[in-house]
Design a binder for these strands. Structure first.
Length: 613
RNA sequence: GGGCCCAUAGCCUAGCCAGGAUAUGGCGUUUGGCUUCGGACCAAAAGAUCGAGGGUUCGAAUCCCUCUGGGCCCGCCA
């Protein structure tokens, strides 16, 4: 609706410009912005200064000529030229009763679909995200990937894509072989694990019962399979490092690589354990996947081998002095020290990129377009992969494979590292958050039973955590802090949820919570009503931009603005106490529309909207 | 050594890609506000040489160059 009006304004302006100055401009070239400041109207354009040279006239003359010829599209009430800082803006004001009426009607009739469009209808998007290493529980660093991925999935669906989510499981590498070896050799029973003052793991061989500092720290999660593996992974990596046991691990990894099913089975068992634990955590966050793609599959079905052969056939392919096979991508600005990106070791085994190529060839065949969420540490790898896929002829169009990168989540002072046992697990964060939220909810709602309190506490805590990690631009580095992650005040999910709960509360009190009727006539009597409705009207544009430009943080940003605007409305415009029945009906419609829009926005973020909290 | 990303008040952050209206909010600080639809709230105040320097432009937080600080990458790990 808002975009429709914008397009109409652009068309009309293009026409006016043509008539006035004989300049041909396509509507796309006409700048028209959605205004966030109501005093400048609903839309504005700096077209006059843009035309300065081409028209050869002063801005005020240009403005006059355009306004004179501008044919007002539906809902546009007036155009005004306003000068500021030497620029003449064209500001477009809408016929508010008509526009607002239409907006509210649209929200109330579209309900959960408000904001969505069918732009990509009939197209399938394969979205790979998370793909967390199977070395232990999900930490707050890795989970940024999942949260961005899940939100992008929602956004993609909201603009019409048929989305399929995938999780790539690394069940082949050295890391996994290390764990399998460690478990089979009962490392965590033979060695005590402690950490020195620098946080480095220290091992000590023992005959008696082994101590494990990680186990005592995470006693609560001792039975969770991903933690169990973590307890073994840390001492085993350390042992291998100390004792130079690489060859034993390499041998195991090599046998997997050769497709030996028994070895692959040994690794896969470990991986499935970790994955089961990770899935539990993801499910607590409400994140699920349509498919888990095991790396080993691409070895077993021969597609990795096929990829090696195809790579060797490329003109950029070469054999290095060491006997390894590599591909030289320097002509694409992707230089490697050794002279190329190695894809096959001298012993004939393949490097991860081969399986990545095989995997992506498969993925490209599954959907109309592909999107991946990857940490910034994989930027080069992604570029190489994409370049290779183009060289191989598997990627015909750049747009068919796209990526969202994100910066790392750090901890004050040191980097998170599973290998060193330095993590903040998502489970502990959730548990701590729910604990805090429960106290808060209980103190505010004495009448609620324990079960209801627990449910709301969960929604609040999970909301706060997700919102906190999603409200910042993906490329901005985050420093994790318990206080910030679990802050329930200010620009945080609970504030938005609270506005929603208040809206619900008004509807309950007014006895219209279940009522879906829309009043015959909607009236606007003050600015707070218009500002609120105007902001509601922006939601579809927000979704569209966030989805197209892969900027999920626009959603928390918008949710907070809308919640704030609702609070202002709440204080200035009594709903149930409104004297005129028409005003009361209209305001109820605004409350319903706000509640619906807040819900829809939070829902895209994977955040629930409790009706009381 | 080379490449990519980030830098906005004491702290966190929007705006940057498509340059233009007094730079967006939050936390914290100070002051005030619950007999009126829920105080996880509201109103107000103070707080910014938009990392530094140069350039392009009528106009730069936004584009270009140089530099500084931080992160990431430059594995025959994945």
């Amino acid at each position: 609706m808002i975009e429709d009006i914008r397009i109409e304004i652009k068309k009309s302006l293009a026409k006016a410009v043509h008539e006035a100055f004989q300049l041909s401009k396509s509507p796309d070239e006409i700048p028209v912005d959605i205004q966030t400041k109501p005093e400048f109207g609903e839309f504005s354009s700096n077209l006059c200064i843009q035309l300065l040279k081409a028209a050869g006239k002063k801005q005020e003359e240009i403005a006059l000529e355009i306004i004179l010829r501008f044919e007002k599209p539906e809902f546009v009430d007036s155009v005004e030229a306003m000068e500021a800082g030497g620029v003449y803006y064209l500001n477009f004001f809408l016929d508010f009763p008509a526009f607002g009426d239409k907006v509210l009607r649209e929200v109330l009739s579209s309900k959960d679909d408000y904001g969505k469009s069918d732009f990509h209808k009939g197209q399938k998007l394969l979205l790979e995200h998370s793909s967390i290493n199977p070395t232990g529980p999900i930490n707050v660093g890795r989970v940024r990937n999942s949260l961005i991925g899940d939100t992008m999935a929602g956004l993609a669906r909201a603009v019409g894509w048929d989305v399929e989510t995938h999780f790539y499981v690394d069940d082949m590498g050295k890391q996994v072989a290390t764990i399998a070896w460690g478990i089979e050799n009962k490392i965590s029973e033979k060695y005590s694990l402690t950490f020195d003052e620098r946080g480095e793991p220290v091992l000590e061989e023992t005959d008696g019962p082994a101590e494990n500092e990680l186990l005592s720290r995470y006693e609560k999660y001792a039975d969770k399979p991903d933690f169990k593996v973590f307890f073994t992974y840390v001492p085993t990596t350390k042992l291998i490092e100390d004792e130079n046991l690489d060859s034993e691990i390499d041998e195991l990894a090599e046998r997997c690589e050769e497709g030996e099913e028994e070895s692959i089975g040994r690794l896969k068992k470990v991986v499935e354990d970790v994955l089961a634990g990770q899935k539990q955590t993801l499910e607590r966050l409400g994140i699920t996947f349509d498919s888990f793609d095991f790396e080993s599959r691409f070895v077993l079905d021969g597609s990795a081998q096929k990829a090696i052969e195809d790579l060797k056939a490329l003109p950029q392919s070469l054999e290095l002095d060491t006997g390894a096979n590599a591909i030289d991508l320097s002509e694409f600005g992707l230089e490697r020290r050794g002279g190329g990106t190695v894809f096959q070791r001298p012993n004939g085994t393949s490097v991860y990129i081969v399986r990545d190529v095989a995997y992506h060839r498969w993925k490209l065949g599954q959907a109309d377009a592909n999107l991946i969420v990857l940490g910034e540490d994989h930027k080069v790898e992604y570029k190489e992969l994409k370049t290779i896929l183009k060289l191989l002829g598997d990627l015909k169009d750049d747009n068919l494979l796209d990526v969202v990168h994100f910066a790392f989540v750090g901890m004050k002072g040191r980097r998170m590292s599973t290998r060193k046992g330095v993590i903040v697990s998502v489970d502990e964060l959730l548990d701590e958050g729910i604990d805090r939220a429960e106290k808060e909810v209980r103190s505010r709602n004495e009448e609620l039973d324990d079960e209801k309190v627990a449910e709301i506490a969960k929604q609040v805590a999970i909301g706060a955590i997700k919102y906190h990690m999603l409200k910042v631009q993906t490329m901005k580095q985050l420093t994790f802090s318990w206080e910030d992650a679990l802050d329930f005040e200010g620009d945080a999910a609970p504030y938005v949820q609270y506005a929603h709960a208040r809206a619900s509360s008004i509807l309950r009190k007014g006895g219209v919570f279940e009522d879906t009727s829309i009043p015959e006539n909607i009236v606007f009597t003050n600015e707070s009503e218009r500002d609120l409705t105007r902001l509601i009207s922006h939601f579809p544009s927000i979704i569209f931009t966030a989805a197209a430009e892969r900027r999920p943080h626009l959603l928390p940003d918008y949710a907070y603005k809308l919640a704030t605007q609702f609070t202002e409305f709440y204080h200035k415009s009594p709903v149930l106490g409104a004297e005129e029945p028409e005003v009361k009906e209209s305001r109820i419609a605004m409350v319903k529309a706000t509640r619906q829009t807040l819900r829809n926005c939070l829902s895209l973020l994977g955040i629930e909207s409790p009706d009381r909290m």
